[in-house]
Amino acid sequence: MTVLYGEGRSAMRVSELPCAVAAARAAAASLGLAADEAVVLHDSNKLTLRLLPCDVVARVAPVADQVARLEVELAQRLTEMGSPVAALAPRVTPDVHERDGFVVTLWTYCEPAVPPEVPPAAYADALARLHAGMRQLDVPAPHFTVRVDRAQRLLADRDRTPALAEADRRLLDGTLGRLRRAIGERDTAEQLLHGEPHPGNLLATESGPLFVDLETCCRGPVEFDLAHAPDDVAEHCADIDRDLLHDCRLLVLAMITTWRWDRHDRLPNGRRLAGEWLGRLREASAEVR
């Protein structure tokens, strides 16, 4: 199972795009960077732009929906340690810029590698090096179970999830509760994690794989992070609890399935994916009985 979608990864509203682009260009201009052109690289909960001719990457989000200062702090400290994360833009002071209701952060543009896929062994190595760097940081971060709580609150809110059948609602809630207890009862070391190191948050660059989107960081067992990666990545990981990884994979699957039933979710083909994932969870539930 490869998990590609995290919590609330719906695209920025179309009406917000021109203002978000203008905010990014204005932030760059205030630092003396020429940003005559903005090329959209990715549109999710954050808008990612390549600004030209200064050739830096701008990440833009509404003020209310971001934890940019933590992300900037983590990126700066992890880069200094040589961890495989995208670096902040050179020649400017690392900071968070607020413009017209948006926050803008500026990053180094990295040429994509050819081919663009990261091989499983390189993926596993990059994640292990990221975790090694994160173990050296003492920063406040929520426990991964906070996300389980949010998912269960969403399931309890029938106004937010009106299309979800009651049997499937019970299945999701029961799966989340059961796996949260099972994972919590294990005597497992926990540390700072990326939170969502799925393939969409790993760039294949000419200088090697680099993780992005550090705003999802949380605390928990490394198996929770590994649960977001393609299955064959785990084959290259030593010293992991395979049973715990299995439980974490099912837990993450139940969470991302829940997000797809939120009536505000705008992920393309989200409901089709939710139906497929519910089928997997039904099979897993039947095996437990």
Score class of each variant (00 low, 15 high):
residue 269 N to L: 12
residue 243 D to N: 10
residue 275 G to T: 12
residue 194 H to W: 08
residue 229 A to R: 00
residue 250 L to G: 00
residue 265 D to H: 07
residue 277 W to A: 11
residue 268 P to N: 09
residue 233 V to F: 04
residue 200 G to T: 05
residue 208 G to N: 11
residue 211 F to N: 01
residue 282 R to E: 15
residue 247 D to F: 01
residue 199 P to D: 07
residue 224 F to S: 00
residue 246 H to Q: 14
residue 206 E to Y: 04
residue 257 T to L: 11
residue 283 E to T: 15
residue 267 L to S: 04
residue 190 E to S: 15
residue 246 H to C: 14
residue 225 D to E: 09
residue 209 P to M: 07
residue 276 E to R: 15
residue 256 I to A: 00
residue 246 H to A: 15
residue 210 L to P: 01
residue 203 L to N: 02
residue 184 G to N: 14
residue 260 R to K: 12
residue 262 D to M: 03
residue 281 L to K: 05
residue 258 T to D: 08
residue 232 D to V: 07
residue 222 V to F: 04
residue 245 L to V: 05
residue 265 D to L: 03
residue 213 D to F: 06
residue 253 L to I: 04
residue 201 N to D: 12
residue 257 T to M: 12
residue 228 H to P: 01
residue 242 R to N: 05
residue 196 E to A: 10
residue 266 R to F: 05
residue 190 E to P: 08
residue 264 H to D: 13
residue 243 D to A: 14
residue 283 E to K: 14
residue 232 D to M: 03
residue 209 P to N: 08
residue 272 R to Q: 15
residue 192 L to M: 06
residue 205 T to K: 07
residue 255 M to G: 02
residue 197 P to W: 01
residue 275 G to P: 04
residue 240 I to H: 11
residue 226 L to Q: 02
residue 192 L to Q: 02
residue 245 L to R: 02
residue 203 L to F: 12
residue 261 W to P: 00
residue 237 C to T: 08
residue 188 T to S: 13
residue 229 A to Q: 02
residue 263 R to H: 09
residue 276 E to V: 14
residue 203 L to W: 03
residue 252 V to K: 00
residue 201 N to V: 06
residue 272 R to D: 15
residue 196 E to C: 05
residue 234 A to D: 05
residue 252 V to L: 07
residue 233 V to Q: 03
residue 196 E to P: 01
residue 284 A to N: 12
residue 231 D to K: 04
residue 252 V to Y: 00
residue 217 C to D: 03
residue 241 D to V: 07
residue 258 T to V: 10
residue 281 L to M: 15
residue 232 D to R: 07
residue 246 H to W: 13
residue 238 A to Q: 08
residue 192 L to P: 00
residue 217 C to R: 01
residue 265 D to C: 14
residue 259 W to D: 12
residue 283 E to C: 13
residue 284 A to M: 10
residue 243 D to F: 03
residue 279 G to V: 12
residue 195 G to E: 03
residue 205 T to E: 11
residue 250 L to V: 15
residue 268 P to A: 12
residue 248 C to H: 03
residue 216 T to K: 00
residue 230 P to A: 06
residue 267 L to G: 03
residue 261 W to M: 06
residue 222 V to A: 14
residue 237 C to H: 01
residue 220 G to H: 02
residue 239 D to G: 09
residue 196 E to H: 04
residue 202 L to Q: 02
residue 274 A to L: 04
residue 257 T to P: 08
residue 200 G to N: 08
residue 185 E to A: 15
residue 185 E to V: 11
residue 229 A to F: 01
residue 259 W to Q: 09
residue 259 W to Y: 11
residue 230 P to Y: 09
residue 222 V to K: 09
residue 228 H to F: 11
residue 199 P to Q: 09
residue 258 T to Y: 06
residue 267 L to E: 11
residue 239 D to I: 04
residue 205 T to G: 10
residue 207 S to R: 11
residue 268 P to T: 09
residue 185 E to P: 06
residue 217 C to A: 13
residue 214 L to N: 01
residue 207 S to T: 15
residue 273 L to M: 12
residue 220 G to W: 01
residue 215 E to P: 03
